[in-house]
Design a protein around this nucleic acid. Structure first.
Lengths: 193, 193
DNA sequence: TTTTATTTGAAATGAACGTTTCAAATGTAT
DNA sequence: ATACATTTGAAACGTTCATTTCAAATAAAA
């Protein structure tokens, strides 16, 4: 009986995510989102809830698509160390392709909202724990294979890499020289060898 | 003849800086600034210009007071490597004392505004160049004294440290466990030895 | 004490904000 | 073809935004 949702939900989320990623949560207006999605105002409220709800969907979509990119790229890795090298190559590529200097949407979100919104803080903490586990597992395997040194525990290396990667992404907002960025990336990895 | 400014300019800037640091530029309203400074709306516009002007003064004030803290702390350092260790101790202390999880105001500003405001981008680039020079000089001295290794150029190490420190400050928004943070700090320094 | 440039307070400005409303349009299932 | 739950568009909602206005209060200089 009913008319059904006509728009492509994934595509709409992609548009909204781009808008939020570009300006951040607070500086993105509902009008920006209407323009970016092509949807009517009411349709946004009808299908996604308010601005904050939509933002949460976008964060999740951004996170999912990033993990997909990561898994796809790391699939070809010969060993866990090489996987981490590829991970940093992926970030380097993203920084160089990020000509609008937007940075990482999740890191930006931590800067902007972690101390203002408990729901966002929750998401960010889960994201952090998940990523720490992902990194820790890679390091653990790498140490078992003998391609990563055993000076520190996998968890220590995961913490270090998590911090270093956030710095890399943030520094990449202002830095755009490829050589500079490659230097940083190589030095981060060197710690593991 | 005229009535003269009665308020303490430095104190007013401190109040405004706290407000901006806590919520970021966009989420801080003029009313927040009136409350935080104790000044009347008109007095703010009269004495500092608009919101963005005031924010620039606050950024500068934050930067100045941070450099003062740094210089005071690093004054006691026996050598350049020890100075960098003390620098990271300073950041560690700031993160642990930052119970409201605000992070670094300048890093947050880069996340929020670097790609939206050319004036801000200018400030951030100058800040970056200044800090890179500061770090580079320390590393150069350290290498000359033989307390820092010579695997890389001072500029390379400066880039690495700049990135690592930004990551440390950003990760510190979500991380608050002292041991975790100490691990990261130690691993950053280890690269130099 | 008078003059005068400035600060101050309170109110008003118009624009933009996120959100709601509701009648009209839509398209599937009967 | 008809019924109907949903989407859609446009307008309006009340609030909050940054900023301006301006008369009153202020305090240093004359």
């Amino acid at each position: 009986m009913p008319k059904v949702e006509t728009f492509d939900r994934a595509l709409v989320l992609k548009g909204a995510t781009d808008a939020f990623h570009n300006k951040g949560y607070n500086a993105t207006s509902m009008q920006d989102l209407v323009d970016a999605t092509g949807l009517n105002r009411s349709s946004i409220y009808n299908s996604f809830g308010g601005k904050k709800d939509l933002f949460m969907y976008c964060l999740k979509a951004y996170q999912d698509s990033y993990y997909e990119k990561i898994f796809k790229k790391l699939d070809k890795a010969q060993n866990p160390l090489r996987a981490l090298e590829l991970l940093l190559e992926l970030y380097l590529k993203d920084i160089l392709e990020d000509t609008k200097n937007k940075g990482c949407m999740i890191t930006n979100c931590a800067s902007e909202m972690a101390n203002q919104d408990p729901l966002i803080a929750n998401f960010l903490n889960s994201n952090q724990n998940g990523f720490l586990e992902f990194l820790g597992n890679l390091v653990e395997s790498g140490q078992a294979e003998g391609v990563i040194n055993k000076k520190r525990t996998p968890r220590d290396y995961a913490l270090y890499l998590f911090s270093a990667i956030q710095g890399f992404r943030t520094a990449g907002i202002l830095l755009s020289n490829k050589n500079d960025l490659e230097v940083i990336s190589k030095m981060i990895i060197q710690t593991l060898i």
